[in-house]
Design a protein around this nucleic acid. Structure first.
Lengths: 133, 133
DNA sequence: CTTGACCTTCCCATTATGGGAACCCCATAT
DNA sequence: ATATGGGGTTCCCATAATGGGAAGGTCAAG
């Protein structure tokens, strides 16, 4: 397969495939005489795997660790699980933060009449939180 | 006040104050003879306001709109409320996405023994989701 | 008048992704 | 054989918001 085919098959854009190669996330592809990159089905699976990891919201560094475990026949599933759970924890922390933001802003909005007059508790609170409603 | 003072007082770093000026989020500061930026208490309040908006997770473009409303004495609170609720909606959408990621990964982790053997449902599923447990 | 803290501008780096230019290659239709 | 379209290649640029750091000017206190 060449890069366009592996991109379509894996769901990773050709641009990103080249990028992953430059940052060393995937090994350098073999080349044809003309310089075209050549991929095996195994490469395609690896890219698909990476795509899945990204879909889980993992930062590249974590993806890198996970790919290393994936390729290591002698890994301990404990290590994979620990990595996964660490990510779940981070996701839940982020969710907590966003929820706090949304709730706080929702509460302010609930206090706002939302009419044609300028008086607005949202702006008032944001300008000076000490005057909380 | 000079930039260091307004930075400390507003919670926005001096670097960011200069940056906000270059992108036109805040007006260009007056300068002393020597070229030092000079800020009024009103400027400080504006920066604090911006800081609060950022704390709510708003992207700069939304902050820009909000600052415009804040400065407009003739705004309609309806417009402020609409903007706030739009942001709440986006936050909740993001939360839904992150929750789906966390739940899916948690479910995979629950299936993983987490021992010293290499067999791991997390990796198996990520490599090929069609073999779902 | 020195010294240290603060200011100025300018450049660089980050993360992951896409856009686009300039140029080369391959297969197919004429 | 050749024109042509659809790839491929590299390289550079841009993003959003933020920090780091260098080189050099300024201010205030001792």
């Amino acid at each position: 397969m060449n890069i366009g085919e592996v991109a379509t098959a894996s769901g990773v854009s050709a641009k990103m495939v080249r990028y992953y190669e430059t940052i060393g996330l995937i090994p350098q592809a073999r080349r044809t005489e003309a310089g075209y990159r050549v991929y095996s089905p195994a490469d395609m699976h690896m890219l698909r795997f990476i795509r899945r990891a990204r879909d889980f919201g993992m930062p590249m560094e974590r993806v890198r660790q996970l790919v290393a475990l994936w390729r290591d026949e002698h890994r301990a599933s404990r290590d994979v699980k620990a990595l996964a759970l660490r990510h779940v924890t981070e996701l839940r922390e982020r969710i907590t933060e966003l929820t706090a933001m949304a709730d706080a802003l929702q509460e302010l909005a609930d206090c706002c009449q939302g009419n044609s007059r300028p008086e607005c508790p949202i702006l008032r609170d944001m300008a000076d939180p000490s005057t909380a409603a």
